[in-house]
Nucleic acid binder design. Structure first.
Lengths: 235, 235
DNA sequence: AGCTATTTGTCCGTATGTATG
DNA sequence: ACATACATACGGACAAATAGC
């Protein structure tokens, strides 16, 4: 059990209050002095917490004015002409893959919506690390319907390939229906696995793969190390 | 001219020394106390600089051991099957565009290589801000050959559209030949324009647009606000 | 316009905790 | 066990930008 520092717990408390809607985007947070008084700490301890939140893009400080909550992230549609067909296995450049977790659990609402299944339905979750030249390149998480693919977990375990495991389950081909790209900052857990600093730039892709009938088969997240990686896309 | 703080100049000095190869990846930097003595500042001022470098993924501190230089960034090719056809004008969702700079200057080596022209050849540089709902979405920079498009600057100025300006110059259609995606951290200038915190996550795309003959016509960079937007790509 | 109080930014100094070697 | 080195927290002081009068 890691003892959490005071500034980190303050950052968590303020983040939770923003998430709960206590402070809305555009709102001004209490002054550093007020927060220091409220939490019973020195102003610098509050500053450290606010700095952390600012690095995560949650807040923004304006000297002389105050600390303000930034706007909620909004999606930005590029349009139908945009195509981003991503298939890491097809790249032929994935020398190593390390399995972090393989488990079956009830899906949450987001996963249910992506896979078009009922919430709470069991799903297989495959989390792992992609390495190239023994350097961590990305963390990925793939979610599949456990009802549709009963034996997928065992196939993934020894095949270590989503494509081949799906092929064994009868899905000969699948295509990327949609991909969303965002830049994020590395969390502590991600930083640990990817061997980067906490707060390092991360390129996150969220995608849905569908079979030839258009039925979703995989809901995948990938977190690439931003500064260590450039996705080179040739059309 | 903005007065740079002491910790920032220290961070710049150390970053330059790493870039110059004075410290190689894996090397241990001098201790905070030694650096404080060398720069004639308090240890906390050095810490602020080291923290900034760590956030950028340049260094990593291990308590009790020291501060170490991380590995150099490397490119990561995905492969030829990957397609990412991006055209912001085709999205139909770019309500506002603000011109930051319009100028003609000699191109550098990188631009020369991308546009397949000789180094030092004059190029038109179009820098601007993309806004949606009066919120800054991205900074872009487009570079064109000035010899091939003599009157482009004026067209860009009043059309405010790359597509229409190129059409006026005889390029009826152009396609994205390649795009490279990277996650970055916002620089001070970018943070200012995009109204985000310095160090906020930035999604950078670097692309080359070619005419139907395959000849490069535009070399473009775009810096999206990572947390404020998600690139939604539908295939 | 100026002026003033407020608020964040920077820098210093000190002390103590915690992990490393 | 010990010295070293980074992590955290406290305190004070002044500068710089902002907001309100």
């Amino acid at each position: 059990m890691a003892k959490t520092s005071v500034w980190r717990s303050i950052a968590n408390a303020l983040t939770a209050e923003i998430a709960a809607g206590h402070y809305r985007p555009g709102d001004k947070l209490p002054t550093e002095a007020e927060l220091a008084s409220r939490f019973g700490v020195n102003r610098h301890t509050v500053r450290r917490a606010l700095q952390d939140m600012q690095e995560q893009g949650l807040t923004h400080a304006r000297r002389g004015a105050g600390v303000f909550v930034l706007a909620e992230p909004t999606d930005y549609p590029i349009g139908k002409r945009v195509r981003f067909h991503q298939n890491l296995e097809a790249a032929g450049r994935m020398p190593a893959k390390r399995i972090l977790t393989l488990q079956t659990r009830p899906c949450d609402k987001e996963e249910a919506g992506a896979l078009q299944i009922a919430a709470g339905t069991p799903v297989h979750v495959y989390e792992g690390l992609s390495l190239a030249d023994n350097i961590a390149i990305a963390i990925f998480r793939s979610v599949f319907s456990a009802e549709r693919f009963p034996g997928l977990l065992g196939d993934l375990d020894h095949m270590k390939s989503v494509t081949r495991a799906l092929a064994a389950a009868g899905v000969k081909d699948y295509t990327r229906a949609s991909t969303r790209l965002t830049a994020k900052l590395a969390t502590a857990t991600q930083a640990l696995h990817l061997n980067v600093a906490e707060g390092a730039p991360i390129l996150r892709t969220v995608g849905i793969n569908v079979d030839p009938d258009g039925c979703p088969v995989e809901y995948g997240h990938t977190w690439f190390v931003g500064d260590r990686i450039t996705l080179v896309v040739e059309g």
